[in-house]
Amino acid sequence: MLTKRVISCLDVRDGKLAKSIKFVDTKDIGDPVERARKYYQEGLDELVFYDITASSDRRDIMIDVVSEVASQVFIPFSVGGGLRTVEDCSRVLLAGAEKVNVNSAAVKNPGLISEASRAFGAQAVVLSMDVLRVGPGPEIPSGYEIVINGGRTPMGIDAVAWARRGEDLGAGELVVNSIDADGTREGYEITLTRMIADAVRIPVIASGGGGTPGHMFEVLTEGRADAALIASMLHYGEYTIAEIKSYLSNRGLPIRKAGMPVT
């Protein structure tokens, strides 16, 4: 049986973990490669690296990080942030990432999804969408709107319609990130996640609001997500991967075993 995936997201700036990530154990603070390796050894299913480097001339550092991770971490991982062209995508894939994560650039230029999908296959293209709850209206029948620039710019696009369009254009997977829930740690946006999971036939990763394994269980069952993205609950050391996985599996979800002995 296909398992539900536990995915963690690491924000990287200038090749270092972003300051917003506060770790309990200080040994490897700042080093995304060390952190990725630790999570890999503890049994994480997948990783997402989000490059938040401000200046584009420093993006080569990210390529080095990707390549280092790929040499030591043998689970799938995707890279997002600042990918605007097929060439940008090609660079991170050649450096060893399994998938690219496109977001704002795809909203502004949907052709990016189809071009990347043709070039690398749908399985390599993850469409990440930032979504704000606005209430149903003529342009936004679902009540959820696509926003870009970290939630600051509303685009007048319905989130469910955009998810379907992304699937049609060739995305292999969707990350549904609720701007309302993000950072609250009070649980994922279940209604939104479920609406989108019901509307498409590609896997859906729920993001934003995860604070406890119970929240993850909720979005993986009621929310019909295929995977749950977590950040601070793991980075702050509140839960280990083993604890999260044993909770989910004790509640009856198919989950990949944690903490395999590493070769």
């Binding site: 296909l2 299913d45 295929d226 995977a227």
Partner: peptide, 10 residues
């Protein structure tokens, strides 16, 4: 059930 079959399976 989604297509592609994507993820970890026994």
């Amino acid at each position: 059930l989604k297509i592609p079959h994507m993820g970890w399976n026994q």
